[in-house]
Design a binder for these strands. Structure first.
Lengths: 156, 156
DNA sequence: GTCACTGCAAAAGGTTTGCAACGGA
DNA sequence: TCCGTTGCAAACCTTTTGCAGTGAC
């Protein structure tokens, strides 16, 4: 059974650390770190709740000097592919994105205010073994997202 | 810890039973059972792998006498709202729908051929309790989907 | 200097909506 | 008969694409 572990800062990505890490990771991967991409990164790091591509573009426009729509979409897709943003399939909210870390990551979403807590590790090992033997599948990935209410929204 | 349990027929929905159950459920709910809806239901019951709304519409057209696009979308949405079809967020495949049963249901998807096995029950109880106490969230729902290869696709 | 990246504008999809006609219960 | 449902076509919204120009390394 693996450990359950919140990421630093109570499950929220640290904006500066995230931007810094993505930048260096991209440069190591041979991608170019351009102005428009930097603006997209910094905007994404600022969200505490899931955002859509269109909302990201609109917010960048509001900031002034927005990258083109295509750049926003292309950057977002690349970030998602490499695991730097996770897709959130919330029942109530529109499905959106949130800054994250690559690897085995899950999310707990407040269905009232949208706040997201990321955590690593889950207790699915036993279940997957049992399922695999009953279905004759080999299991090699999973999507797990939890929904509830954060402490602030429980009062409402 | 709850039981892990495949639904009847190895996790696959029985087409006839599913259509029959949806029909009566809808009529009990005061909805009208029309010809176009029947065609949509029967087509959905025939899929063994996830389908998109547009694909469903195209297949109905190929069958001849297709309901209008709007009817297909509206029916599909209603089925999803009431839990009769589940959304599948597969990593490789396009996200799609699959016939299901309302309630607490999870899906195991073959990432090669798309075959879906549904199962009830999961081992998330402990984890949710721990997470809830660490984050001060109340947790009241979750999305769990597993990905792997069915026995047939393991050989490929 | 190269070639990845950008931005525009157009195209492509997918989904929703308004509204008059239709048809289950 | 009544009112939920349908179908069409247009509107809408999001995402993708082509391509000439730009700028990071």
């Amino acid at each position: 059974m693996s450990q359950l572990q919140l990421t630093a800062a109570g499950g929220r990505v640290n904006p500066d650390a995230w931007v810094r890490t993505v930048r260096s990771s991209w440069q190591n991967a041979g991608h170019r770190m351009t102005e428009p991409r930097t603006r997209v990164l910094e905007r994404i790091a600022g969200y505490t709740t899931p955002f859509t591509a269109e909302q990201l573009y609109a917010d960048l426009q509001a900031d002034g000097h927005a990258p083109g729509r295509a750049t926003v979409y292309r950057t977002l897709e690349q970030l998602h592919t490499e695991g730097w943003v996770a897709r959130i399939h919330s029942s109530g909210l529109d499905t959106g994105y949130i800054a994250s870390w690559p690897g085995h990551m899950h999310h707990l979403v407040c269905t009232n205010c949208g706040v997201v807590v990321a955590f690593e590790g889950c207790f699915l090992g036993d279940m997957m073994a049992k399922l695999a033997s009953e279905t004759n599948f080999t299991i090699d990935g999973h999507l797990l997202q939890l929904y509830g209410r954060c402490i602030r929204c429980q009062r409402v």
